[in-house]
Nucleic acid binder design. Structure first.
Length: 889
RNA sequence: GGGCAGUUAGCUCAGUUGGUAGAGCACCGCCUUCACACGGCGGGGGUCGUAGGUUCAAGUCCUGUACUGCCCACCA
């Protein structure tokens, strides 16, 4: 398509073109029967209500990097895309829309409401998918799934029924977390604890048959009507004599027992605790343990029930005020103090969560949790490893999982109660008659399942389970799960539990938990703070590749990413640099692929050097990605392209391109061509669009069948191009060139001004190297001429430097300030001196000589001689220069 | 209360088995050099939070400590 062209890369059309091509041609749809080691990842399904945020962008970029890289390695690769129905979140969105029409879901009724949500999903649910595509994600769109599509719903039912039959799902009364706004139960981890400024009231309870009182401390006086005991520590001498007696509930006058339990903290408050089993998780536990009465006094709307006596009908907030007032009046309020304490909030709507006793469905987790725990780290490895502990801790202290939600959008619980005989039926297919009494009066449960229930099946439900599909056989377990650490409990641990239970195999071999993306100040990005960086806007402004490269470059393991727009802009420069390096390459190739030659025996130290570096880069990128060191992979690419290929090689190859020697010219072209092409492959997983565009504009050897870049194999290693010795020679030449440039810059000689250069190399190797590469030095150092000389021929008034023993001399004419050169030399000498002192500290230490490895000692010795030699030469030149100065004075 | 991270150049961060501190951005100076000013060349800048310990040698290992952040948790 495009010839290579504009001097600035324009991402928009390029991205649109490749995206369409990849989708239309099903480039990323694998064949389960195809050869190659299987490699699979399931997408962490974004909420169907969602819009792509920067966290998704990071997550998806990292997955795509691995996926594209795995394809390059010849694996049979599947990336399953999809979305999550997100029960509460989606229901909230639709309810808000209804509210604008002055309607509630109850006005519509369940069926119409659910239909409305489906409609909403049809209309808006594709936005996030479109955004995933715009990120360049190489997912297989033919295998797109949704947690409520037909297949996944079948999987959900199968799992529910099986677990029920195994006794791992049960229905029971339990104290759960109740959000009175969402009007549903919440699982423990859907509750966010936040410190809230509150009060601690001290209340007097009179002890029956005694003349003493007991003072308890509470943060929630409105629950006093629900008290069914007072609890003290069994060894608390202040209270031991009261254990077994009864106290009188203030205001209500009910009689409650005084019990003892070591759960009580003697240090806190008064050491005596009021127990309200229906309105506090711990009190619930105490109530169970001591067989206390359970009296619910607050209903699911936050209104006081009749059990609260005089407070019936008040909201819990009103009740608190009233009861405090009443206590005060009666003289039973002993004191009030300030207290900051943690209060649970709904993670969806941030309403204060009320512990509430109700009938719910639970998954018994003890057995499942143990299996999930034991699988790590042998079968599944969690990275960074530090999260392993967190994972263990959660599973070790896990409580049964409350899976019922009192909302309408979700998988309805497949359980029916017979209206005639009370029999509970749980079945995959909707039953028509009661299995016990034959009645057809069956009533299905109103509740739906926790969204995470279906998400927990994702790795196998998306592959067609419970059918035995080719996909499952080929790609389960998945290779790796990439997700944020914030859902390690919600999702990762539960996938482990259910995956192991139903597939008898872990759902993934690795779990890579990436960081959170924060703003430049380290704050969490949120709409309310107004500090969000919108990936869609960033793609629009800087191009997708710039965004992807930035995210990859910052994805160091175990660390949060502080992102700011500047950085994305900065990496756009890198993309542009690549673009221009490619333009240069194309221009010089002249639209034709060069004739291949044997790169292992190519002559020219610059060629050998860049080929050597390319081999290193190939190894580094591959190794980095195998270890999930994304930032290292990006860094390697950045450095290779900019600091080596562009800054040096492209300059070095220019003289070759001007050459009349056809063989030399072709060899240079072929190296240029090869390095560019292989580098495009290395970079492609990180920046797929720009690399694909350049790749396909590159000339091709006639008759050669070159695949598009997305299908190109990772370049083979070329061991005969690994030449550290040759690379070192290049480094010497670079040193000489830099030395001349530095002299010019520091002495205020215009860089364009051509100067004479005298070199006094040490040894034949340096001498011949310089002679062989004279043109190269002339060009890059911008010289008038270059001479290899000996001491006596060196003009006294010269600037000088030493590189690996080779003396570098630039004769100065009267135009420069000679004193500056003296200062410059002194600076160099000071540096040398410092290094020498350091090395000698080692070499003068007998312990070092004796105990350090011989390699290290040898290296230091060599270094010391080198430094000493350089110092001597520099000193010598300084002396002569000083003399010259005197003479001119 | 427990656990886990982080603390390295002005800023954001690398630093894989311990062997003379690195990058990008920012900054300073020079340069309209025929791929690129989204550029080129050169330069300045760090006693690696702090106190100890192990070692011939510590940013790197161990212990204590300070600060910041995160997670978990039943202090009513």
């Amino acid at each position: 398509m495009s010839e290579i062209l504009a001097s600035a890369y324009e991402p928009k059309n390029v991205e649109a073109h490749w995206r369409k091509h990849w989708e239309d041609e099903h480039v990323f749809t694998p064949d389960p029967q195809a050869p190659g080691e299987p490699y699979s990842i399931v997408i962490p399904p974004p909420n169907v209500t969602g819009a792509l945020h920067i966290g998704h962008a990071l997550n998806l970029t990292l997955i795509d990097v691995l996926i594209r890289h795995a394809r390059q390695l010849g694996k049979n690769v599947l990336w399953v895309p999809g979305t999550d129905h997100a029960g509460i979140a989606t229901q909230n969105v639709v309810e808000r829309a209804l509210a604008r029409e002055n309607l509630t879901r109850h006005d519509l009724g369940r069926e119409a409401f659910v239909e409305r949500v489906w409609g909403w999903r049809e209309e808006y649910g594709h936005r996030i998918l479109d955004q995933i595509a715009s990120l360049g994600c190489s997912v297989d769109w033919t295998r797109l799934r949704f947690t409520m599509d037909e297949g996944l719903s079948r999987a959900v039912r199968r799992v529910f029924v099986k677990l029920y039959e195994e006794g791992l799902i049960y229905k029971g009364d339990y104290i759960i977390n109740w959000c009175s706004r969402c009007h549903t139960a919440l699982a423990d981890d859907e509750v966010e604890h936040e410190n809230v400024h509150g009060h601690l009231w001290q209340v007097r309870y009179h002890v029956l048959d005694s003349d003493t009182d007991i003072i308890i401390a509470t943060t929630r006086p409105e629950t006093i009507p629900g008290d069914t005991a007072i609890c003290v520590h069994p060894e608390d001498s202040r209270y031991t004599h009261l254990i077994g007696k009864y106290a009188v509930l203030p205001v209500l006058g009910r009689k409650i027992p005084i019990i003892a339990d070591s759960y009580v903290d003697r240090e806190f408050g008064t050491g005596a605790l009021k127990v309200t089993p229906c309105h506090d998780h711990n009190d619930w536990m105490l109530g169970k343990r001591h067989n206390l009465e359970f009296i619910q006094v607050i209903d699911e709307n936050g209104i006081m029930k009749s059990e609260s006596g005089p407070y019936v009908g008040l909201t819990k907030e009103e009740c608190r005020k009233q009861i405090v007032h009443d206590l005060e009046e009666r003289g039973d309020l002993v004191g009030v103090s300030d207290l900051d304490h943690a209060v649970g909030h709904c993670y969806r709507c941030h309403t204060v969560v009320e512990p509430h006793v109700s009938t719910q469905w639970f998954v018994a987790t003890t057995k499942l949790a143990k299996e999930a725990r034991d699988a790590v780290p042998n079968l599944t490895q969690i990275l960074p490893e530090t999260w392993q502990k967190t994972y263990y801790h959660w599973l070790d202290t896990i409580r049964d999982w409350c899976i019922s939600r009192q909302i309408w959008w979700g998988h309805r619980i497949p359980a029916w109660t017979c209206q005639e005989c009370g029999q509970i039926l749980v079945a995959e297919e909707d039953p028509t008659v009661c299995t016990k009494c034959g009645s057809s009066k069956l009533l299905q449960e109103e509740d739906v399942l926790d969204t995470w229930f279906s998400s927990s099946l994702w790795p196998f439900s998306t592959m067609g389970w419970p059918d035995e599909t080719l996909e499952l056989r080929r790609w389960y377990p998945t290779s790796v799960l990439i997700t944020g650490f914030d859902i390690i409990f919600f999702w990762v641990a539960r996938m482990m539990m259910l995956g192991l239970h139903f597939m008898h195999e872990v759902p993934f071999k690795h779990v890579y938990l990436h960081a959170l993306v924060r703003d430049a100040e380290g704050r969490k990005m949120s709409k309310s703070t107004g500090n969000v960086i919108d990936p869609v806007v960033m793609i629009e402004k800087y191009g997708c590749d710039a965004l992807r490269f930035t995210l990859t470059a910052f994805a160091a393991m175990g660390r949060d990413i502080r992102l700011s727009e500047d950085r994305i802009e900065g990496y756009r420069h890198f993309i542009n640099k690549l673009w221009n390096a490619a333009r240069f390459t194309m221009l010089n190739l002249g639209g034709e692929a060069p004739t291949p030659c044997d790169l292992g025996i190519i002559s020219g130290v610059h060629h050998e050097w860049i080929l050597h570096r390319l081999e290193e880069a190939k190894q580094n990128v591959r190794k980095a990605l195998a270890d999930y060191r994304f930032n290292d992979a990006a860094q390697t690419c950045y450095k290779f392209l900019w600091a080596e290929f562009c800054d040096w090689y492209l300059e070095l190859v220019k003289p070759d391109m001007q050459s009349q020697d056809a063989v030399r010219k072709n060899a240079a072209k072929y190296v240029l061509y090869t390095v560019m092409r292989e580098f495009l492959i290395l970079l492609h997983p990180i920046t797929p669009f720009v690399t694909a565009e350049i790749w396909q504009a590159m000339p091709v050897v006639a008759g050669e069948d070159v695949p598009e870049l997305a299908k190109a194999a990772y370049p083979n290693e070329r061991p005969d191009c690994l030449k550290p010795a040759q690379a070192a020679k290049m480094e010497f030449l670079q040193g000489v060139i830099v030395a001349v440039r530095t002299i010019k810059a520091e002495l205020g000689i215009s860089p364009g001004k051509k100067v004479h250069l005298l070199l006094q190399p040490v040894g034949d190797e340096q001498t011949s190297l310089i002679k062989a590469n004279e043109n190269l030095i002339l060009t890059l150092a911008r010289l008038e001429d270059l001479q290899v000389v000996f001491d006596h021929a060196v003009p006294k008034a010269s600037a000088s430097a030493v590189v690996q023993g080779c003396q570098i001399v630039v004769p100065l004419k009267g135009t420069v300030d000679l004193a500056q050169e003296l200062a410059r030399l002194d600076k160099q000498l000071a540096k040398l001196e410092k290094n020498l002192i350091n090395v000698n500290k080692h070499l003068n230490d007998p312990n070092f000589l004796q105990k350090a490895s011989s390699e290290v000692v040898e290296r230091d010795r060599k270094l010391a001689t080198e430094l000493l030699d350089n110092q001597a030469k520099l000193l010598n030149m300084r002396e002569r220069f000083a003399k010259a100065l005197e003479e001119t004075d």
